[in-house]
Design a protein around this nucleic acid. Sequence first.
DNA 1: TAATGATCATCA
DNA 2: TGATGATCATTA
Length: 238
Amino acid sequence: MNTKIKNFIPYTFPLDPPKDENALLHRANSLFGYTLGELSIYAKLEIPPNLKRNKGWIGMLLERYLGASAKSKSEQDFASIGIELKTIPVDISRRPLETTFICVAPLTGNSGVTWETSYVRYKLSRVLWIPIEGHRTIPLAMRRIGVPLLWSLNAKEELQLKSDWEELMDLIVLGKVENITAHHGDMLHLRPKASNGKALTAAIGKFGQPILTMPLGFYLRKKFTAKILERYSIYYLL
DNA sequence: TAATGATCATCA
DNA sequence: TGATGATCATTA
């Protein structure tokens, strides 16, 4: 399957949101094999020399091609059909090169929140994964789009994430947020999510008092997303 | 500041 | 060399 078969892209931008799951998947499939350089030209979007100062650029580009509700709120990218979009950088074996950001961790106002009602679960309930060649040695414009995968949490995955989430949220709620490191959590963990090391947000201190601390985000470890991408990966280079 | 989109860069 | 900790752009 190393023959690159391209599909004509008849899109005019901006696109309407896809009316259903099939429409979204059809669009996503049509992008397979294109390079980021090609997509940037058709979308009339300037391509940066690299991602150092444009870390979310690929995600924004793909949002255009799939008709995601641009600059959305705290919702899934395709809220009307219940789907979140994630681009994920992969190597030639379709293995993830980076962890996957999910959402900012709520450090206050967590009374009554459970895994079932959590924002993490909402975001991950159904995800359209789009693998992209991600090695920094490949010029950005030459990186190719891989085969997309529409995924839902299965029972095993949900148990794994729920377990991690409950452990991490306990630390947050019980005032141990400043003890949290990326070592906590087997599949899901917390890491800084901020503009810089000086950013502060409200949280609960060790005596239950209000404090200011570094904002954290939930991320999926690579070993978790690797398992997801292994599905249906038999025939494809990416 | 917080939310969206993530990857960079350092060090064990 | 990979994971952790740090950071970049943009919008509201």
